[in-house]
Write a protein that binds this DNA or RNA. Structure first.
Lengths: 312, 312
DNA sequence: TTGAAAGCGTTACCAA
DNA sequence: TTGGTAACGCTTTCAA
């Protein structure tokens, strides 16, 4: 709304003085920011890399800036980080899962910005949500092992955050249905997941229950450890041991044999999660939330196979 | 500086009203923020996960908040993000490498906050720097292949950002020294690194130069692809083909055979980089920068071996 | 220890 | 179109 000559003159001075507008002053005066806060439990974890990719792709040409904060699977840290983010009056918040502390949940509900919960499926979102069912996916994976003819499946889990717990519940329930549940084949640890941990847990399990004929792993890292250690021990996979992972990370298809796993829609969660949030921010009138459930697909690869005669 | 009774009364009201201090107003009034901006080229890349772990460990009990932004290997995006970060008047900035655009470099030099450049070693840091030499590490890796007796080594590289270019230069120079340089054994692509890409590039290379007897890969992802594909093709690794990676990611030690690679000090870069920055912020009087070069170690595993009789 | 008041650098609004 | 002037919600300083 200024004449060209004035604009030119101003721009010249801006250049000469190296002027940069002050974000704090701008935020204070306008009562708005371009900040989208993103809370993730881990960045070491390959799982979130894809989610981030989706978010970046979606946010590329928007006026928003995504600020990632990592609460390292600590609910208290998460609570504290939500508080810090809220001080900045973000335009929106993306949080991982449904398992915040009561205090954190209250802050999210009271926040005067839109909130989207990602990576899980829950009954009662704070506002928006997009994710997939860890429980149902684990049921699918377990039923697949049974359909292949494996009869003594085990569960390997690390860290056991709430989503991992739901996967274990899915495994357990699917087995109980058929009367094949054996709690002594469940191995979990609070340590954080890694390939190395997978090899260890596998060694422990096999030493203790050598007749185990299938393993559902909490995630692909663990499963890769199992597969690689099985290879070193000349185990016949999938003939004598079926292995199924969770997530479908990039390496999973390249292992020998390829890893059967649950392909979780991480990219879409990130991309569509951001888009939902953006839409909600842009149309504040329609204040109602929205809950999106994405499918997670079982991908059958060489680490499981229909056995001709069940090993039972 | 208030009496207990007043403090109590205030805190009660704070609680009742759900008061949260406004970060923008605070920043504006105090002319300070608790923000440390961290610019990384990728988060998909496992490489930065360790750096982040180091930074988080170092920042845990400090008043600072680390804000990660991802410029996706785009120097222009990096420049733009530096500008956005600077608007926020950060307490400090951590940037990846030495290869910013001239404009970006100028902004960093003009910034009225401390800056640390991480992950590389360069002559002329903006302020602080901590990293390791990609060139020297690649020379080490290449010499190791030669010392093993491999005589026709190839280079596989993806994305080829500036640090990858320096690795290629190290490879090239180490070979030229011994008169063994063969440019037709260099395969690079602008695509981003992945295990799948490693298998592809390996297939291309072997089809074109079947007598190749060693491969130095730009990073462990590519190397893992080579190893896994070599396994499928029943290549004798390390007997007929030596493979060396770069970075020493977690999976590398667990592959069969284990991957010989350069262990880069990523955790330390993150941890010490943050500490250097913090120290510099706290003692503004000593305005001089500091340059730290960390060693990167060759880790010999099963994918290379001293050959009894060189294959030449 | 408390209270009052003057900025901080923008945005938003109104009058010219 | 332009210029002027209140906010915005803190921190800082100074006086009481």
């Amino acid at each position: 709304m200024v004449s060209d000559k004035v604009r030119e003159r101003v721009l010249a001075v801006v250049e000469r003085l190296g002027y940069v507008p002050d974000a704090a002053a701008s935020a204070l005066a306008s009562k708005r920011t371009d900040l989208i806060g993103l809370l993730v439990p881990s960045l070491t974890n390959n799982v979130f890399a894809e989610v981030l990719r989706g978010i970046y792709d979606a946010s590329e040409d928007t006026p928003f800036n995504v600020q990632i904060v990592n609460f390292r699977y600590s609910p208290l840290k998460e609570e504290q980080l939500i508080r810090t983010l809220l001080r900045q009056k973000p335009a929106g918040l993306m949080v991982t899962g449904f398992d915040q502390t009561a205090e954190a949940r209250a802050m999210l509900e009271g926040a005067d910005c839109r909130v989207v919960q990602i990576m899980d499926s829950g009954d009662d979102p704070v506002d928006l949500s997009i994710g997939f069912s860890h429980y149902a996916s684990a049921v699918d994976a377990t039923r697949h092992l049974l359909a292949c003819g494996y009869r003594r499946p085990a569960f390997l889990g690390a860290r056991m955050d709430p989503r991992s717990q739901r996967r274990l519940a899915g495994f357990t329930d699917a087995l109980k249905e058929t009367g094949m549940f054996d709690p002594t084949r469940i191995v979990t640890t609070p340590q954080s997941s890694s390939i190395g941990l997978g090899t260890q847990l596998f060694a422990d399990l096999i030493a203790r229950r050598p007749d185990t004929d299938a393993i559902f792993c909490n995630n692909d890292d663990l499963a890769a450890g199992v597969l690689l250690e099985a290879q070193r021990r000349y185990f016949d996979v999938p003939g004598k041991l079926g292995v199924c992972g969770f997530n479908d990370l990039e390496f999973s298809r390249h292992l020998n044999p390829g890893l059967t796993t649950i392909a979780t829609p991480r990219y879409d969660v990130g991309r569509r999660g951001f888009e939902m949030l953006r839409t909600a921010i842009d149309t504040p009138d329609e204040a109602q939330g929205g809950k999106v459930d994405l499918p997670a697909q079982l991908v059958e690869r060489g680490s499981t196979r229909r056995l001709d005669s069940p090993s039972a």
